[in-house]
């Protein structure tokens, strides 16, 4: 099963839940892969402390103009949805940092004046944390486009019983790229007005993508009951409510694996895995 851990709001506990699920699942003997797709700021490694075995650059393909062939017709600039090409009467300029590597401009060029060349945008790091296969993408500082890096992380992962994709926060392209192709999505939220508002955006996004999802309420007794009411009203399944616990905060601050440090949380995590396994087997 490919399971994405996402949330609208940042700081709700995606990485805590994702690394906990990976650790508990590995304890039960399943093959587990943890993919840190939050390539702008991957931090799963803080908890999983993997041994990195290999590292390679992540590249995206960007267009390069052959000035000898270019007729300055402007079709490439018209095709680019991202405004990354300026077609001037005498010259065609490419702003590679804005390119999403879709290849549309190359298809649009009627004279074959564009070819795709690789441009390094980050690093792919592959290793192991105990029994857990660990992969993370690290976007280079100054790069604005994370989806190609997320694609690189996803395509480098070998099949496992359970593949956990730790998504970036938000509801835009990087999140869509992460959850696309997943079997299930867990939306981690917190019982605050911010948590609820951003959860509702994430739900809208996942419903468009038509991926089955459930909600995990983290620090469940810290705020109010509105997230629960929202889920009931919209027939959204709450898979787990993890209580607010000072011991969790302390373990988190020390970069510990939560279920290892706080066994009561481990029970909630094991329960999530059991429910997921119960519905169609991970």
């Amino acid at each position: 099963m490919k399971l994405a851990i996402a949330s609208g709001k940042g700081g709700t506990g995606k990485t805590t839940v994702a690394t906990s699920l990976a650790w508990v699942a590995a304890q039960t003997g399943r093959t587990v892969a943890y993919l840190d797709c939050d390539v702008d700021e991957p931090n799963g490694h803080i908890f999983l402390r993997p041994e990195i075995e290999s590292e390679r650059p992540i590249e995206k393909l960007v267009p390069e103009v052959d000035p000898a062939r270019c007729t300055h017709c402007g079709r490439c600039a018209q095709a680019c949805r991202y405004g990354a090409i300026a077609s001037l009467p005498q010259q065609t300029l490419v702003f590679a940092e804005l390119c999403h590597a879709c290849g549309g401009c190359v298809l649009a060029c009627p004279v074959g004046a564009l070819r795709e060349v690789p441009r390094p945008i980050g690093q792919l790091r592959i290793g192991r944390s105990g029994q857990i296969r660990f992969l993370e993408g690290v976007l280079q500082v100054g790069e604005a486009m994370s989806p190609p890096a997320i694609r690189a992380v996803k395509s480098a992962a070998e099949a496992a019983d359970l593949t956990i994709l730790d998504a970036p926060p938000g509801t835009s392209c990087p999140v869509v790229e992460t959850v696309r192709g997943c079997d299930r999505v867990l939306l981690v939220t917190e019982p605050t007005p911010f948590g609820l508002y951003d959860l509702s955006l994430a739900v809208e996004m996942i419903r468009v993508l038509k991926i089955p999802f459930a909600v995990v309420i983290n620090r469940a007794d810290a705020g109010d009951g509105r997230v629960r009411e929202y889920c009931d009203r919209n027939r959204i399944f709450i898979l787990a409510e993890i209580p607010d616990d000072r011991a969790v905060a302390e373990a988190y601050s020390n970069g510990q694996i939560i279920p290892q440090a706080v066994p009561t949380v481990g029970k909630h995590i094991a329960d999530i895995l059991e429910q997921l396994a119960g519905e169609d087997g991970p």
Partner: peptide, 19 residues
Amino acid sequence: QNLNAPQGAGIQAAQAAAR
């Protein structure tokens, strides 16, 4: 069109000026 573009507004506005 450029006013509402998510990115690349300056590039495209400059291209328009040239055209």
